[in-house]
Design a binder for these strands. Structure first.
Lengths: 188, 188, 188, 188
DNA sequence: GATGAATGAGAATTCATTCAT
DNA sequence: AATGAATGAATTCTCATTCAT
């Protein structure tokens, strides 16, 4: 979605509505989950439902758009961390960052596991961006003999996103601690 | 719990329907999740909706009934494993068993994290049975210096149940491997 | 219903259940109205629903049975009052008594006006008993020139039963006062 | 949303549906009472159920809307009658008018006494409009020594509305006659 | 005769999605 | 382009009534 073939310019009001929708969706996803009624989002954005459907015909289009920036930034951070740290340290820090992202944007982890066919497209996007980043970090650390080499990036990604889901009575600290435990298990 | 205070016998047909409902619910929970429409369950059971509501006025009553035996058996297995194995080994095996349970009865892990107020009662039951069992195993292993001592049974339980949730394209093998990784992280 | 062709004797337990049902129905009618769920009545009576349906196949059969004694007694009181009082005084006292009955047994007035076809039979019974009694009292008072002669007993009966219905925030005092006002209107 | 605060104009189709709903509701309330299934109303209006719920989220909103005009007109008529007639005559005529209203719009009197919590709001509205009107008429007539002064407008209002309920086999004539009788009772 | 389990037809309500304005 | 009204399928839950035990 970032580089569309035809860079059609958006009318000013259309762009404003788009932003309002994204902001509203982020809030509502965090508050009521990604299955929240469309009306809740459009009301908060001060926009008609029709406008939502015009911009995001599929529910997953909206979810994807909401988290796109964060996901891209997280993926890109892999390279920088590799340049600055030992492989094992880079890996740990990147997973911390990922956990941070998933635990903060609560709706995201949930959306990945909702099972709702409406979100079939989302995991694809997430994976296409994060999997190569994590793969490179894992390979480097494994080559360094710092961690075992039998864990695939895809499954680690899924595991971290599972462990980042909110749990009754529990805060982000719980998620962070459990992910750290998992990462400890990676070490030879 | 089967034969409490007053062991009033169930009429033959009632018992038959109850079984049919439990069987159907187990299938449907696995197929469509614990939020599946009541009708889906009663149709599969060949029974009217009213019958479901008679036996299980609350949705969580049904979920609880479906998983009750397995949960109880799992909790009870802790003692036997402690008697036969070293503390660390007993702990590992018990968590394997728990993972097996959660990964097999797919709906269960999902129900624990549904957030739906209808299931408020379920985590309470699960925790009241499993938490003491896991607590004992953790304490024994920690006393043995085999594992770190700063992980509470409650959070480990939640973490395992998170890691036991089904993930698209993935089988039970994934869940088992990730839990094993987490347990490896426990070792000092 | 008092003198059935075949005075079949009731089995002791059947008679006990019948009484329990009548008592329970009276309580429930007063508490939740005559449309109350059948289950509420049978539970209070400690009896199965089937038993209710055996004794009272139609809802109105039950309502009628519950109020039968009171209605009969009220109808019969007309003669005694006529013997002891002036026609106008007898009329006033009898209507007082009727109001008392309707205002006390709250469900009764409501049932008369529920409109539910299930109670088609009830007004018939009530009228067949009370209409002659009131008719005699009205005729006597009218012959005495104490009241106007253009009010039919049937409509007065309906009017009193309407004015005896419970009204939010209001007690039986309200009903009594309004009926008294209506009776005042009868005087020439 | 353009010019809110004030009377934002309804879209043409929305207004058409609203009218259809009000018309249908009036018919259905008269035919089946105010507890009639929502579907019955929407079918008659040729409209989806959702449309009913959009315009009238609460059942009482619909009932109120249906009777609002009539109630307002009736309340306002009090002043005009006071200007044109003697106090006693004005009172009588106003109550006639009220009876006319209640007896014609059959559902209204019933709704006032349904007891259903869904209508809690309705009596409040009715009272807030009619009670002051009747109060003024009563005070004037009492000051004139034409009627007794111990009857409160609220209870008279309730009594008239009770006497205006439809009774099987009976037409509006019955209701009118009985209310007239009650009013006769007011005279000293 | 009594019981209470089972049935299934409603009734209310919500919300994703379409489409007239 | 935006709006938000309309639709109606889907879902939950209740209860009168029947009937196997």
């Amino acid at each position: 979605m970032s580089d569309d073939a035809a860079p059609r310019r958006l009318r000013a009001d259309a762009a404003r509505n788009l932003d309002a929708l994204l902001d509203a969706a982020e809030v509502v996803f965090g508050r009521s989950g990604v299955d929240a009624p469309a009306k809740e989002i459009t009301d908060l954005a001060g926009v008609g439902v029709g406008t939502l459907y015009r911009h995001f015909p599929q529910r997953s289009d909206l979810v994807k758009a909401v988290f796109e920036h964060e996901i891209d930034a997280c993926a890109d951070a892999g390279l920088a961390l590799s340049a600055e740290h030992e492989p094992a340290e880079a890996l740990t820090r990147w997973i911390d960052r990922l956990t941070e992202l998933l635990a903060t944007k609560r709706g995201l982890a949930a959306a990945l596991h909702s099972g709702d066919p409406a979100f079939d497209a989302l995991p694809g996007y997430v994976m296409s961006r994060l999997e190569p980043a994590l793969g490179a970090l894992l390979d480097a650390a494994a080559a360094d003999r710092a961690i075992r080499s039998d864990v695939r990036p895809t499954e680690l990604l899924y595991a971290v996103s599972l462990l980042s889901q909110p749990v009754r009575d529990t805060g982000a600290g719980f998620n962070r601690r459990m992910v750290a435990l998992l990462v400890d298990g990676l070490r030879a």
